[in-house]
């Protein structure tokens, strides 16, 4: 299935994946980040119960230097 992460298409050889597993696959597990899933913010406590579907969109953000 295809998932769009920060505008990039990512292909996964599975039919179902939860957000926790996806984060591990993206090697993000040690970073401080926040996630918007199909336009809605999703808290960390709900990652393991959130199962992604083909075509879902994720925005994963961090804090960077800015004025």
């Amino acid at each position: 299935m295809k998932i769009y992460v920060n505008g990039q298409q990512k292909n996964f050889e599975v039919t179902e994946i939860c957000l926790t597993s996806l984060i591990e696959k993206l090697a993000l597990n040690e970073k401080k980040f926040a996630i918007e899933y199909n336009g809605e913010i999703i808290s960390k406590s709900n990652f393991s119960q959130t199962f992604l579907k083909d075509g879902d969109k994720l925005e994963i953000v961090i804090a960077v230097g800015g004025g």
Binding site: Q8, A27, K31, K32, I62, A63, V64, G65, G66
Partner: peptide, 20 residues
């Protein structure tokens, strides 16, 4: 201190330093 919120680079080095 002000900070900006931006998309993280996917697939970058996990040990990469962060502002925090």
């Amino acid at each position: 201190v002000t900070v900006a919120i931006r998309r993280t680079n996917i697939g970058q080095d996990i040990k990469e330093e962060s502002l925090l």
